[in-house]
Design a binder for these strands. Structure first.
Length: 649
RNA sequence: GCCGACGUAGCUCAGUGGCAGAGCAGCUGAUUCGUAAUCAGCAGGCCGUCGGUUCAAAUCCGACCGUCGGCUCCA
């Protein structure tokens, strides 16, 4: 037998017998690696462990505790699940079943099943899967001709597989994976055998359209996840449980911040006093930052004439998101889904000079959009919401600087609220669009250029732009790893034309300005929801609805406690006094559950010394101190983030 | 909107064909207490709504409304 040389990731060479596989290599390198290995990267490409190695190949063994390794485990688990379903429900047709990672689920498989699946079915399927795993059936890969694959799936009556087969580009190889008697069209790679699935759990059933298109048939999707060992699975399930506790809807109820009422309607938020207080604080900070960044505040009405929305293109391109018109003295009016036409009218209220540009109008504008009932989700997806909107009117030569200014502004705001991880996307031209292709290209290039100049990494979100122009989106993840768009910066070359907005240029000619639409926090509702989850309800002292709870030990300390409350109010600190006839520990528990940053304990000792004993929500007793010192401490802790240092670009 | 699950007291939930329950919250009283739940009593329900099956329905069936998990869609 001839020998082959394999290059390891550290650059060293390793000698193996010809015909050895990646699994042989892993076992030779170390016993534990042989056990943990789930796949191999051969010359950078993820492959089966059973792939024979060729001389001179660079090989990296992939273990189950890595993201790539888990993907392989989960993908294999999806196959095992499909096999189990076929065995239990032979009439069911299989479709697709990839590994995913949305923070909860690790894989799914979509089935065409008349009767759907029940929770009970999941248990049976799980049991059946475990049997297949216990048999430790090998996964085998086979590359076949299209004709052979087509014959195979046609005989099996797997029409969806035939459709997928036809979608594989001509040049590409068609591969099949088989374990036991289940064969699936699949690119791979897979585990060497089913026994390598050490821990899995089926999680939920859901509906999903074939190929993600609502015109297609609704399939039954089963979600599950799988890990390299039982401990990792358990840890994951606990993490998901933990994350549910910081769901903003749960927190909103516990902390009495907001609610929804079926009497009012779905997706319409009722802000309770404490939630409203937080919102007001966010809005105040937002307003100040906008003055700092050179914006002018405006207000606009909630409805406008149909003609206005016709002109803006909303009735042609956004109608499905707008509510039915209402009639006022014979004229149709629409509830606004966006603020732009109003800001444009403010711009047009007089003749503008190039000297005025850029002109930046900002507004906390409440808009109403029709959302299908099934998509409503707490504060994160509602029907009426307040955008922190603005429209910037500028000359073409100012566009780049304005986009960069928006980026700097949004990062200042988001960081002030404690966010540091974002996903940035550039969304390109959608199917339904207005305007010229060359304008779209120019604007898209401007957005990418601004991001590149700011050295910000971004991804492309193809076809996700708004009908009037491309945009930069910045997304923040929620407690369950779901991604939510907050910031959006959109270039609009369409409305300036439609509304014929202009300014008088240096040479006394009329010119058309560019428009930038942008919302930085996105909407007050969504931002508040994401913020709540981010802090698990324990909002930083500067935006906490109540900053300090004053806790007298007995009624005897009430007079002094009231004095302390008055002092706090004078200092503009948000304080409440717990006058109830309860034990101190009870009051502390309540304040703690309300996640109030400070609890000031007042007993006889404190009265004697005219001081207080603060306890933080972290559970720390700061000890008896003079009132003035406690006030200073809290003021320090509750200080607003610093004003931005604006750099002109 | 589509697929599926779930709707019982203000909240969290038990009750699967035979008298509607618990804990917390609320009210009343007692207790005056030092860092995460003091005790007792009281009150609170058209079991989402409407219809059907049954001697009998919170429980079984259907429709509608709402919520939740997905899908399509979006800040």
């Amino acid at each position: 037998m001839s020998q082959i040389q394999i290059r390891l990731p550290d650059g060293s060479m390793f000698q193996l017998e010809g015909g050895s596989t990646a699994l042989d290599l892993a076992r030779k390198l170390s016993r534990s690696l042989g056990q943990k290995a789930v796949a191999a990267k051969i010359d950078g490409k993820l492959c089966d462990l059973t792939t024979p190695l060729s001389d001179g190949a660079g090989v990296e063994v992939v273990t189950g505790d890595t993201p790539e390794g888990r993907e392989v485990i989960r993908h294999s688990a999806a196959h095992v699940m499909a096999a189990a379903v076929k065995k239990l429900f032979p009439v069911v047709k299989v479709t697709i079943g990839p590994a995913v990672d949305d923070g909860v689920n690790g894989f799914y498989y979509d089935f065409d099943n008349e009767r759907g699946f029940t929770e009970e079915d999941l248990e049976n399927i799980s049991r059946q899967m475990q049997q297949e795993i216990d048999k430790d059936l090998p996964f085998t890969r086979r590359e076949v001709s299209r004709e052979e694959a087509r014959r195979l799936f046609a005989e099996a009556g797997e029409s969806y597989k035939l459709e997928l087969l036809d979608a594989i580009p001509e040049g590409e190889k068609v591969s099949l994976y088989q374990h036991g008697d289940f064969v699936d069209l699949c690119r791979g790679p897979h585990l060497p055998s089913t026994g390598a699935i050490k821990a899995f759990r089926l999680l939920s059933v859901a509906g999903a359209y074939w190929r993600g298109d609502s015109r297609n048939r609704m399939l039954a999707r089963i979600y599950g996840t799988a890990f390299e060992d039982k401990k990792a699975l358990q840890a994951h399930l606990e993490r998901v449980e933990e994350a549910k506790k910081r769901d903003h809807r749960t927190l909103g109820k516990q902390l009495d911040l907001f609610s929804f009422s079926p009497n009012v309607g779905g997706g319409l938020v009722l802000w309770h006093p404490r939630g409203a207080r937080v919102r007001a604080l966010i809005e105040e900070f937002w307003r100040q930052s906008h003055f700092d960044y050179g914006y002018q505040l405006v207000y606009s009405p909630h409805i406008g004439r149909a003609d206005l929305w016709q002109k803006s293109g909303h009735l042609d391109f956004y109608r499905q998101n707008m509510y039915s018109p209402m009639e006022i003295e014979g004229n149709p009016f629409f509830l606004k889904p966006m603020n732009c036409p109003f800001h444009i009218e403010i711009y047009k209220s007089k003749l503008r000079s190039y000297r005025e540009l850029p002109l930046r109008f900002c507004e906390l504008g409440t808009v109403y959009r029709y959302e299908a009932s099934g998509v409503l989700h707490g504060l994160l997806r509602v029907r009426g919401f307040t955008q922190d909107d603005a429209h910037i009117f500028c000359r073409e030569d100012q566009l780049d600087a304005e986009v960069r200014r928006c980026l700097a502004h949004t990062f200042y705001l988001l960081r002030s609220f404690g966010f540091s991880q974002f996903d940035i996307y550039v969304s390109t031209r959608p199917e339904k669009f207005v305007g010229e292709l060359k304008d779209w290209e120019k604007a898209t290039a401007a957005l990418k250029g601004a991001l590149e100049e700011e050295k910000l990494a971004y991804q492309i979100d193809p076809g996700e732009g708004v009908f009037y122009g491309p945009k930069i989106d910045i997304k923040i993840r929620d407690s369950l790893g779901r991604s939510w768009q907050c910031t959006t910066v959109q270039i609009d070359f369409n409305n300036p034309r439609r509304f014929e907005i202009e300014y008088v240029d240096r040479d006394n000619h009329r010119a058309q300005p560019f428009m930038v639409h942008r919302a930085l926090l996105g909407s007050m509702e969504r931002f508040f929801g994401v913020l709540l989850e981010h802090y698990a309800g324990a909002l930083p002292a500067w935006i906490a609805p109540v900053q300090v709870q004053v806790l007298p030990v007995t009624d005897a300390q009430l007079p002094f406690a009231r004095e302390v409350l008055r002092r706090l109010q004078q200092e503009n600190l948000r304080a409440e006094l717990d006058e109830r006839n309860e034990k101190l520990s009870f009051k502390i528990r309540e304040a703690q559950l309300q996640k109030i940053p400070h609890m000031w304990v007042i007993g006889q000792r404190e009265v004697d010394q005219q001081g207080v004993s603060p306890r933080t929500r972290a559970g720390k007793d700061l000890g008896l101190m003079p009132l003035a010192e406690a006030v200073r401490l809290l003021q320090q802790e509750a200080a607003r983030p610093e004003r931005p240092r604006i750099q002109e670009v």
